[in-house]
Simulated assay, not measured.
Amino acid sequence: MRHKRLKRTVLLKRAFFVTFGAIIMGVALELFLVPNDLLDGGIVGISIILSYLSGLKLGLVIFILNIPFFYIGYKQIGKTFALTTLYGITIMSITTALLHPIHSFTEDLLLVTVFGGIILGFGVGLVIRFGGSLDGTEILAILLNKKLPFSVGEIIMFFNLIIFGSAGFVFGWNRAMYSVIAYFIAAKTIDVVIQGLDESKAAWIISDYVDDIGEAILARLGRGVTYLKGEGAFTGDEKKVIYCIITRLEEAKLKSIIEEFDENAFLAVGNISEVRGGRFKKKDIH
Protein backbone atom coordinates (compact mmCIF):
# COMPACT_ATOMS: atom_id res chain seq x y z
CA MET A 1 0.00 0.00 0.00
CA ARG A 2 2.81 2.39 0.95
CA HIS A 3 4.61 1.55 -2.30
CA LYS A 4 1.46 2.34 -4.32
CA ARG A 5 1.03 5.71 -2.57
CA LEU A 6 4.69 6.53 -3.17
CA LYS A 7 4.40 5.58 -6.85
CA ARG A 8 1.24 7.68 -7.21
CA THR A 9 2.99 10.65 -5.59
CA VAL A 10 5.96 10.32 -7.96
CA LEU A 11 3.65 10.15 -10.99
CA LEU A 12 1.68 13.21 -9.87
CA LYS A 13 4.90 15.13 -9.25
CA ARG A 14 6.22 14.16 -12.68
CA ALA A 15 2.94 15.11 -14.37
CA PHE A 16 2.86 18.49 -12.64
CA PHE A 17 6.40 19.51 -13.55
CA VAL A 18 6.22 18.16 -17.11
CA THR A 19 2.97 20.11 -17.58
CA PHE A 20 4.49 23.25 -16.11
CA GLY A 21 7.68 22.91 -18.18
CA ALA A 22 5.75 22.33 -21.42
CA ILE A 23 3.56 25.40 -20.77
CA ILE A 24 6.66 27.49 -20.04
CA MET A 25 8.22 26.41 -23.35
CA GLY A 26 5.01 27.33 -25.19
CA VAL A 27 5.12 30.77 -23.57
CA ALA A 28 8.74 31.27 -24.65
CA LEU A 29 7.93 30.32 -28.24
CA GLU A 30 4.70 32.23 -28.78
CA LEU A 31 5.27 35.31 -26.61
CA PHE A 32 8.97 35.86 -27.27
CA LEU A 33 10.71 34.01 -30.11
CA VAL A 34 8.22 33.18 -32.88
CA PRO A 35 6.52 36.65 -33.16
CA ASN A 36 9.98 38.16 -33.62
CA ASP A 37 11.09 35.59 -36.23
CA LEU A 38 13.55 33.86 -33.87
CA LEU A 39 13.78 30.11 -33.48
CA ASP A 40 15.12 27.29 -31.35
CA GLY A 41 17.29 24.44 -32.57
CA GLY A 42 16.23 20.87 -33.32
CA ILE A 43 12.78 19.71 -34.40
CA VAL A 44 11.21 22.83 -32.88
CA GLY A 45 13.41 25.03 -35.08
CA ILE A 46 12.43 23.07 -38.18
CA SER A 47 8.78 23.33 -37.12
CA ILE A 48 9.01 27.12 -36.79
CA ILE A 49 10.42 27.43 -40.33
CA LEU A 50 7.82 25.06 -41.81
CA SER A 51 5.00 26.79 -39.93
CA TYR A 52 6.15 30.16 -41.29
CA LEU A 53 6.37 28.89 -44.87
CA SER A 54 3.17 26.82 -44.87
CA GLY A 55 0.92 28.89 -42.61
CA LEU A 56 0.08 25.84 -40.47
CA LYS A 57 -0.24 26.16 -36.69
CA LEU A 58 3.15 25.79 -34.97
CA GLY A 59 1.83 23.36 -32.35
CA LEU A 60 0.41 21.06 -35.02
CA VAL A 61 3.69 21.01 -36.99
CA ILE A 62 5.74 20.30 -33.84
CA PHE A 63 3.42 17.43 -32.90
CA ILE A 64 3.44 15.87 -36.40
CA LEU A 65 7.24 16.06 -36.80
CA ASN A 66 7.77 14.44 -33.39
CA ILE A 67 5.46 11.46 -34.06
CA PRO A 68 8.30 9.22 -35.38
CA PHE A 69 10.35 10.00 -32.30
CA PHE A 70 7.60 8.85 -29.93
CA TYR A 71 7.91 5.40 -31.49
CA ILE A 72 11.73 5.48 -31.54
CA GLY A 73 11.82 6.65 -27.91
CA TYR A 74 9.45 3.83 -26.94
CA LYS A 75 11.65 1.21 -28.62
CA GLN A 76 15.07 2.56 -27.63
CA ILE A 77 14.55 4.20 -24.22
CA GLY A 78 11.30 2.91 -22.76
CA LYS A 79 7.56 3.24 -22.37
CA THR A 80 7.69 5.79 -19.53
CA PHE A 81 9.98 8.11 -21.48
CA ALA A 82 7.85 7.87 -24.63
CA LEU A 83 4.57 8.54 -22.80
CA THR A 84 6.08 11.43 -20.83
CA THR A 85 7.45 12.93 -24.05
CA LEU A 86 4.10 12.48 -25.83
CA TYR A 87 2.28 14.14 -22.95
CA GLY A 88 4.78 17.04 -22.74
CA ILE A 89 4.69 17.79 -26.47
CA THR A 90 0.89 17.60 -26.49
CA ILE A 91 0.66 20.15 -23.67
CA MET A 92 3.25 22.38 -25.35
CA SER A 93 1.42 22.19 -28.71
CA ILE A 94 -1.90 23.14 -27.09
CA THR A 95 -0.20 26.02 -25.26
CA THR A 96 1.26 27.45 -28.47
CA ALA A 97 -2.16 27.24 -30.17
CA LEU A 98 -3.87 29.08 -27.30
CA LEU A 99 -1.20 31.78 -27.07
CA HIS A 100 -0.78 32.36 -30.81
CA PRO A 101 -3.29 35.27 -31.03
CA ILE A 102 -1.46 37.15 -28.24
CA HIS A 103 1.22 39.64 -29.29
CA SER A 104 4.83 39.43 -28.13
CA PHE A 105 5.72 41.08 -24.81
CA THR A 106 8.35 43.21 -26.54
CA GLU A 107 9.91 43.72 -29.95
CA ASP A 108 13.34 44.57 -28.53
CA LEU A 109 15.49 41.82 -30.05
CA LEU A 110 18.02 41.80 -27.22
CA LEU A 111 15.33 41.40 -24.55
CA VAL A 112 13.50 38.78 -26.62
CA THR A 113 16.71 36.81 -27.19
CA VAL A 114 17.84 36.81 -23.56
CA PHE A 115 14.52 36.29 -21.78
CA GLY A 116 13.13 34.02 -24.49
CA GLY A 117 16.22 31.82 -24.22
CA ILE A 118 16.07 31.71 -20.41
CA ILE A 119 12.35 30.88 -20.28
CA LEU A 120 12.70 28.29 -23.06
CA GLY A 121 15.63 26.60 -21.31
CA PHE A 122 13.80 26.59 -17.99
CA GLY A 123 10.78 24.83 -19.50
CA VAL A 124 12.81 22.26 -21.46
CA GLY A 125 15.07 21.62 -18.44
CA LEU A 126 12.09 20.85 -16.20
CA VAL A 127 10.70 18.31 -18.65
CA ILE A 128 14.09 16.60 -19.09
CA ARG A 129 14.66 16.56 -15.32
CA PHE A 130 11.39 14.70 -14.82
CA GLY A 131 11.94 12.06 -17.46
CA GLY A 132 10.70 13.43 -20.78
CA SER A 133 11.76 15.43 -23.82
CA LEU A 134 10.23 18.17 -25.96
CA ASP A 135 12.38 17.58 -29.03
CA GLY A 136 13.22 14.42 -30.99
CA THR A 137 16.67 15.59 -32.11
CA GLU A 138 18.40 14.08 -29.07
CA ILE A 139 16.79 10.69 -29.70
CA LEU A 140 17.84 10.75 -33.35
CA ALA A 141 21.38 11.80 -32.39
CA ILE A 142 21.66 8.89 -29.93
CA LEU A 143 20.65 6.43 -32.67
CA LEU A 144 23.03 7.91 -35.27
CA ASN A 145 25.84 7.95 -32.70
CA LYS A 146 25.81 4.13 -32.79
CA LYS A 147 26.41 4.11 -36.56
CA LEU A 148 28.54 7.23 -37.13
CA PRO A 149 31.98 8.17 -35.75
CA PHE A 150 30.60 11.31 -34.08
CA SER A 151 29.44 12.09 -30.56
CA VAL A 152 25.82 12.90 -29.72
CA GLY A 153 26.78 16.55 -29.14
CA GLU A 154 28.54 16.80 -32.50
CA ILE A 155 25.54 15.32 -34.35
CA ILE A 156 23.13 17.75 -32.64
CA MET A 157 25.46 20.66 -33.44
CA PHE A 158 25.56 19.58 -37.12
CA PHE A 159 21.74 19.48 -37.28
CA ASN A 160 21.47 22.89 -35.68
CA LEU A 161 24.01 24.43 -38.07
CA ILE A 162 21.76 23.36 -40.95
CA ILE A 163 18.65 24.67 -39.18
CA PHE A 164 20.10 28.07 -38.28
CA GLY A 165 21.64 28.33 -41.74
CA SER A 166 18.19 27.72 -43.25
CA ALA A 167 16.74 30.35 -40.92
CA GLY A 168 19.18 32.86 -42.40
CA PHE A 169 17.59 32.43 -45.83
CA VAL A 170 14.01 32.46 -44.47
CA PHE A 171 14.11 35.15 -41.75
CA GLY A 172 17.35 36.97 -42.59
CA TRP A 173 20.85 36.52 -41.19
CA ASN A 174 20.32 39.08 -38.44
CA ARG A 175 17.47 37.00 -36.99
CA ALA A 176 19.40 33.78 -37.48
CA MET A 177 22.34 35.11 -35.43
CA TYR A 178 20.03 36.27 -32.64
CA SER A 179 18.47 32.79 -32.72
CA VAL A 180 21.89 31.20 -32.17
CA ILE A 181 22.40 33.42 -29.09
CA ALA A 182 18.95 32.46 -27.74
CA TYR A 183 19.78 28.78 -28.33
CA PHE A 184 23.01 28.96 -26.32
CA ILE A 185 21.29 30.84 -23.49
CA ALA A 186 18.58 28.16 -23.44
CA ALA A 187 21.21 25.39 -23.42
CA LYS A 188 22.98 26.90 -20.39
CA THR A 189 19.67 27.38 -18.59
CA ILE A 190 18.80 23.73 -19.23
CA ASP A 191 22.08 22.70 -17.55
CA VAL A 192 21.28 24.84 -14.51
CA VAL A 193 17.76 23.43 -14.20
CA ILE A 194 18.89 19.80 -14.57
CA GLN A 195 21.96 20.03 -12.32
CA GLY A 196 20.71 22.75 -9.98
CA LEU A 197 22.44 25.91 -8.85
CA ASP A 198 23.92 23.97 -5.95
CA GLU A 199 25.92 21.68 -8.24
CA SER A 200 27.75 18.89 -6.43
CA LYS A 201 31.43 18.12 -6.83
CA ALA A 202 33.60 15.17 -5.79
CA ALA A 203 37.03 15.87 -4.32
CA TRP A 204 40.00 13.52 -3.93
CA ILE A 205 42.83 14.72 -1.68
CA ILE A 206 46.24 13.07 -1.17
CA SER A 207 48.50 14.52 1.50
CA ASP A 208 50.75 13.61 4.41
CA TYR A 209 48.28 15.48 6.63
CA VAL A 210 45.04 13.77 5.63
CA ASP A 211 43.82 13.35 9.22
CA ASP A 212 44.17 17.07 9.97
CA ILE A 213 42.57 18.04 6.64
CA GLY A 214 39.73 15.55 7.14
CA GLU A 215 38.95 16.88 10.64
CA ALA A 216 39.00 20.46 9.32
CA ILE A 217 36.55 19.59 6.52
CA LEU A 218 34.22 18.01 9.09
CA ALA A 219 34.48 20.94 11.48
CA ARG A 220 34.43 23.89 9.06
CA LEU A 221 32.41 22.65 6.08
CA GLY A 222 30.17 20.23 7.93
CA ARG A 223 30.80 17.62 5.22
CA GLY A 224 31.50 13.96 5.85
CA VAL A 225 34.72 12.48 4.51
CA THR A 226 35.74 8.96 3.55
CA TYR A 227 39.30 7.69 3.85
CA LEU A 228 40.45 5.44 1.02
CA LYS A 229 43.61 3.34 0.86
CA GLY A 230 45.95 4.02 -2.04
CA GLU A 231 49.43 3.07 -3.17
CA GLY A 232 51.91 5.16 -5.12
CA ALA A 233 52.82 3.40 -8.37
CA PHE A 234 56.32 4.92 -8.48
CA THR A 235 57.35 4.66 -4.82
CA GLY A 236 55.14 1.81 -3.67
CA ASP A 237 54.29 3.82 -0.54
CA GLU A 238 50.86 3.43 0.98
CA LYS A 239 48.77 6.59 0.76
CA LYS A 240 45.65 7.67 2.59
CA VAL A 241 43.18 9.41 0.28
CA ILE A 242 40.32 11.69 1.33
CA TYR A 243 37.11 11.45 -0.68
CA CYS A 244 34.32 13.94 -0.05
CA ILE A 245 31.33 15.55 -1.76
CA ILE A 246 30.92 19.33 -1.67
CA THR A 247 28.86 21.95 -3.48
CA ARG A 248 30.22 24.31 -6.11
CA LEU A 249 30.08 27.19 -3.64
CA GLU A 250 32.22 25.30 -1.11
CA GLU A 251 35.10 24.55 -3.50
CA ALA A 252 37.07 27.71 -2.69
CA LYS A 253 36.73 27.08 1.06
CA LEU A 254 37.94 23.49 0.61
CA LYS A 255 41.04 24.68 -1.24
CA SER A 256 41.88 27.18 1.50
CA ILE A 257 41.57 24.46 4.16
CA ILE A 258 43.92 22.16 2.23
CA GLU A 259 46.49 24.90 1.60
CA GLU A 260 46.47 25.77 5.31
CA PHE A 261 47.80 22.31 6.19
CA ASP A 262 49.69 21.28 3.04
CA GLU A 263 50.45 23.58 0.10
CA ASN A 264 51.79 20.62 -1.89
CA ALA A 265 48.74 18.39 -1.38
CA PHE A 266 47.25 16.71 -4.44
CA LEU A 267 43.66 17.78 -5.13
CA ALA A 268 41.35 16.57 -7.91
CA VAL A 269 37.82 17.95 -8.25
CA GLY A 270 35.15 16.63 -10.61
CA ASN A 271 31.51 17.47 -11.33
CA ILE A 272 28.77 15.11 -10.18
CA SER A 273 25.33 15.22 -11.76
CA GLU A 274 23.46 13.56 -8.89
CA VAL A 275 23.98 12.55 -5.25
CA ARG A 276 21.63 10.20 -3.42
CA GLY A 277 21.61 8.49 -0.04
CA GLY A 278 24.56 8.35 2.30
CA ARG A 279 25.24 11.30 4.56
CA PHE A 280 25.62 14.09 2.04
CA LYS A 281 23.26 16.36 3.94
CA LYS A 282 25.30 19.08 5.56
CA LYS A 283 25.87 18.84 9.30
CA ASP A 284 25.35 21.79 11.59
CA ILE A 285 28.57 23.64 12.39
CA HIS A 286 28.75 25.04 15.89
Rank of each mutant, 00 (worst) to 15 (best):
L83R: 00
N66T: 02
L98G: 05
S104R: 11
F115L: 10
L126Q: 08
L60M: 09
L134G: 10
L120N: 14
S93C: 12
K79L: 07
G42R: 11
F81V: 00
I43T: 05
Q76H: 04
L56I: 12
S51L: 06
G45W: 04
E30V: 11
S93G: 14
F32Q: 07
L65R: 06
S133V: 01
G125D: 00
Q76P: 02
L38E: 03
V112P: 12
T113S: 14
G73I: 15
G73H: 12
D40L: 01
L126M: 09
G42P: 10
P68K: 02
P101V: 14
F105G: 10
P35N: 01
S133W: 02
V112Y: 12
G88K: 08
G42E: 12
P68H: 00
G117P: 05
I46A: 06
A141S: 10
I102G: 14
G132N: 02
L29K: 06
A141G: 09
I119D: 10
I119W: 06
R129T: 03
I64M: 08
V114D: 14
V27K: 11
L86T: 09
A82V: 02
L111G: 13
S93F: 15
N66I: 06
E138Y: 00
P101C: 15
G42H: 11
I128F: 05
G132D: 06
D37C: 13
A82R: 07
I62Q: 01
E138P: 02
S47V: 05
A28D: 11
P68V: 06
L86I: 09
I128K: 08
S47P: 07
H100V: 11
V34T: 08
Y87E: 06
T106Y: 04
L98D: 01
H103F: 09
I64T: 00
S54Q: 11
G116W: 13
H103V: 15
L33K: 15
G121L: 02
I128A: 03
F32W: 10
L33N: 13
F105C: 00
L60C: 05
F115K: 15
G123L: 13
S133K: 01
P101E: 15
T137F: 00
M92Y: 13
L50H: 04
F69G: 13
A97L: 08
T90E: 04
G117D: 08
T113E: 12
N145G: 06
S47D: 01
L33I: 15
L83Q: 00
G41R: 11
S54A: 04
T137D: 07
V124D: 03
V61R: 02
A28R: 10
L99F: 09
L29E: 04
S54M: 12
